[in-house]
């Protein structure tokens, strides 16, 4: 029974993996082809004459942008984890006047599409001198993580009361309970938020495009978007750029992954 179950699980997982990876394999293989051979029909998965030079061309562009992207992603992740976990804890575990209304208002702000107020927002940043700085790319994001707060709230809600009560009996302060007792219980959620925040910052093309005009402050997605011109799209370079920019995110994911498997002793999940 067990072996049959396990084998069929592998079969199912492998089928899914093929469906999820095939297009990406094609992407990588396209990144290794000479431009005139990117589109072969029928599509071939393996390149015939490998062109590593596509990567060379991409790498030439990257260094400064890469550092900017890493820095911004780091600021966003750290900032959002702190702000969202504090707020999420309060919304889930503390009682205070106006709590539910405050939460609804926060959620409501995330419903309004950002492009509806792009122009006024730009004007505000212009007035405080933030245009052509990197502040618009992290300060407002760090201070308004509505979905992350929501997720933290839901995670704190699933923690049994006993832990918290034990802390109270020991006379820990509210902050102490949050920081030392409750927060460690939500590592999987923190890891998930960390990954998503990193990703969002990493792939953000729109923000840097609108707010940054100096080359030395610019980020990776903007550099990569330059491979697409009005009449001039180099697909092989586009694919090489996309492939390169995936690597750091996968690395972050692999790192964060251990927090997802931490509580894996879950007896209920074993066949």
């Amino acid at each position: 029974m067990r072996i049959v179950g396990k084998t069929s699980q592998y079969v199912v997982m492998t089928l899914f993996a093929v469906a999820f990876l095939a297009p990406l394999v094609w992407m990588i293989s396209a990144s290794l082809r000479p431009e005139a051979k990117v589109l072969s029909s029928p599509p071939k998965f393996l390149p015939t004459d490998t062109q590593w030079s596509n990567y060379g061309e991409v790498f030439d562009l990257i260094p400064v942008f890469l550092w900017n992207s890493v820095k911004l992603a780091g600021l966003n992740v750290i900032g959002i984890l702190i702000v969202a976990s504090m707020a999420g804890y309060a919304f889930a575990r503390l009682r205070f006047a106006g709590r539910d209304i405050a939460f609804m208002v926060l959620l409501a702000t995330s419903i309004i599409p950002g492009i509806a107020y792009l122009i006024p927002q730009y004007i505000v940043f212009q007035h405080i001198g933030w245009v052509d700085t990197q502040y618009p790319l992290w300060v407002p994001k760090v201070l308004t993580p509505v979905f992350a707060t929501f997720l933290m709230r839901q995670s704190f809600l699933t923690i049994p009361n006993e832990l918290e009560d034990a802390g109270k009996i020991d006379g820990a302060s509210t902050f102490g309970i949050y920081w030392r007792i409750m927060l460690p219980q939500t590592k999987p959620a923190l890891a998930a938020i960390g990954v998503f925040t990193f990703l969002e910052s990493w792939n953000d093309l729109f923000g840097p495009l609108i707010y940054i005009t100096s080359e030395n402050l610019q980020t990776l997605p903007v550099a990569l978007a330059q491979f697409q011109g009005e009449y001039f799209t180099k697909i092989s370079l586009l694919m090489a750029g996309a492939t390169i920019s995936v690597v750091p995110v996968i690395a972050v994911f692999l790192f964060a992954q251990r927090y997802f498997i931490q509580g894996i002793t879950m007896t209920g999940m074993k066949g």
Binding site: M13, F16, A17, F20, L21, P23, L24, W26, M27, A30, L199, N203, P221, L224, A225, Q228, I235, L238, M239, G241, A242, S245, V246, V249, I250, F253, L254, Q257, F260
Partner: peptide, 19 residues
């Protein structure tokens, strides 16, 4: 497997559209 299923989510949208 976990990484494989997650990979499309992290990939550049323009590249995905093309593929």
């Amino acid at each position: 497997f976990r990484t494989a299923y997650f990979a499309p989510y992290v990939t550049n949208v323009v590249a995905i559209g093309f593929v």
